[in-house]
């Protein structure tokens, strides 16, 4: 395995905090790309703003570091102009679903062939620990010192309802599963969403007394279960992991090619 063939070593050690889950997502993502045998020249990584979005600077692919929440909009442009490229869009929870919430649902609705990776640590880490739309009720944050009253989105339900044709979830405890899901998501022709529950020991963990990075990773093992497991029936509060949606419908770029063909005939 040559993970280091895919990174820009000059930027290491990276800027993420000790024990940050985003490093595990990067690690697992590189393994998925290596396993698929993709050339660096056929991958474009497009990200927005936030801790998670810094990932595009560390990978030795074509990379675009764009505006907060707008990564999917830029990625849509890249994909439409060069549909033969694999476009991967890593986003944080706030970037994807607060600032970029509208882009997220519409990319899903169009079923454009992008791989959206939601690195969900349930907090805005870079700016000092504000709550996000994925924090959920009862969570403590810099901006919710007496606990958060906002309900959270369920990324899987939201993406499925908006029309994403590949929807999956796992956690940083399940590193091999991140790799497997990303492989399937990259190969899928259509809009893929992979939510990876990730730990922010610095803000989310400390504020909510969840212990060290190790404790937070261990917790992901305890609070999740494979889809449809016996444990889920006995403990409905468990969060399911695995592939929730995998279906084929018309992909946006191919539909657009049809329009171009019609227009060129003069119809």
């Amino acid at each position: 395995m040559a993970v280091k063939d895919y990174i820009r070593e000059r930027f290491f050690p990276h800027m993420w905090c000790p024990g940050c889950g985003h490093g595990i997502v990067l690690n697992s993502m590189l393994r998925a790309i290596d396993a698929l045998g993709l050339s660096k020249n056929e991958i474009v990584m497009v990200s927005g703003i936030g801790c998670s979005s810094r990932i595009s600077g560390y990978v030795d692919f074509h990379s675009l570091h764009t505006l907060h929440g707008r990564a999917l909009a830029f990625a849509t442009g890249v994909k439409l102009s060069r549909p033969e490229l694999n476009v991967i869009v890593p986003m944080g929870d706030g970037d994807a679903l607060a600032i970029g919430g509208n882009h997220f649902i519409h990319a899903a609705r169009r079923n454009i062939d992008l791989t959206a990776v939601v690195m969900n640590n349930r907090i805005y880490g870079m700016t000092g620990g504000q709550y996000s739309p994925l924090s959920g009720q009862g969570i403590l944050a810099t901006t919710a010192p007496y606990s958060n009253i906002d309900s959270d989105f369920d990324v899987v339900d939201l993406a499925s309802a908006a029309g994403a044709t590949f929807v999956a979830r796992t956690t940083t405890y399940h590193a091999r599963q991140i790799t497997d899901l990303l492989k399937a998501a990259i190969l899928h022709e259509g809009f893929s969403v992979v939510e990876v529950m990730s730990q922010c020991p610095t803000y989310f963990g400390r504020k909510n007394r969840l212990g060290s990075a190790v404790d937070m990773v261990e917790r992901f093992k305890k609070i999740t279960t494979p889809i449809g497991s016996k444990a889920k029936r006995e403990h409905p509060e468990l969060i399911e992991r695995g592939i929730f949606v995998q279906k084929e419908t018309t992909e946006y770029c191919s539909a657009y090619d049809d329009v171009i063909e019609k227009a060129m005939k003069g119809n």
Binding site: I7, F12, W16, N27, T172, V217
Partner: peptide
């Protein structure tokens, strides 16, 4: 190796 967030161990 798989879980190292810093890619520091192989």
């Amino acid at each position: 190796e798989l879980r190292c967030p810093d890619l520091a161990i192989e």
